[in-house]
C-alpha cells in the first residue's frame, strides 16, 4: 500500500508517494539517494543506520516509511553546518576516528546526539552512548578520543 508522506529531511520539506512498508533506511538510500546512512546488521544491533528522528537518535533500519508523516529526519548528509563540518566530523578526521569508515556515519550521528545534551561527557558516558554502535575495525579508543575532542571544541565555542 502506498501513501503520500510529508516529512522534513535535513531541513528540507519532502513530499513523496511511498510504500508504507519501505524501511526508512531504504527510502533514504534507494529512493532519495542519500547513501551516507549505512546498513550493517539490519536488526538494530550495530547502529550503522543511525539517524535523528525528531531530535532523537534511532535505527533507520527498523522504521517503516508509513510512520514518517510529519517527522523531522536528519542524516549524516545534514550534519554539516553550512560549508563547515560539525565538531564531531572535524574531531573524527583529526583523531583518526575512522578506519574502514563504514560505522562512521552512525558513530557521528550518535556522538552528535550525545553532545547535544552533554558537552562534557566522561569516557564512561561516551562508551555508554556508543554502546549500540559497533566498529568492526575495533577502533574504539580513537573514536572515544574524537568525541572528547569534539566536546572540547564545542565547549570552547559555547563556554
Amino acid at each position: 500500500m502506498n501513501k503520500k508522506i510529508d516529512f522534513t529531511l535535513n531541513g528540507k520539506a519532502v513530499s513523496r508517494d511511498v510504500p508504507t512498508h519501505r524501511l526508512l533506511l531504504d527510502l533514504l538510500r534507494d529512493e532519495i539517494g542519500a547513501t551516507g546512512t549505512k546498513e550493517g546488521c539490519g536488526t538494530g544491533d550495530c547502529g550503522a543506520c543511525t539517524v535523528m528522528m525528531n531530535g532523537k537518535p534511532v535505527n533507520s533500519c527498523l522504521i517503516l516509511s508509513g510512520e514518517l508523516a510529519g517527522a523531522d529526519i536528519v542524516t549524516i548528509e545534514g550534519l554539516k553546518i553550512g560549508a563547515e563540518l560539525h565538531a564531531v566530523q572535524k574531531a573524527f578526521v583529526q583523531d583518526g576516528g575512522a578506519q574502514c569508515g563504514y560505522c562512521t556515519p552512525g558513530m557521528l550521528m550518535m556522538s552528535k546526539a550525545l553532545l547535544d545534551s552533554n558537552n562534557n561527557p566522561s569516557e564512561e558516558e561516551i562508551r555508554y552512548a556508543l554502546s549500540g554502535n559497533l566498529c568492526r575495525c575495533t577502533g574504539y579508543a580513537k573514536i572515544v578520543q574524537a568525541v572528547q575532542d569534539a566536546a572540547a571544541m564545542l565547549r570552547s565555542k559555547n563556554p
Partner: peptide
C-alpha cells in the same frame, strides 16, 4: 534494553 537508539523507539 538494547541501545539508546532502540530505547528511543
Amino acid at each position: 534494553v538494547g541501545s539508546i537508539q532502540i530505547r528511543n523507539r
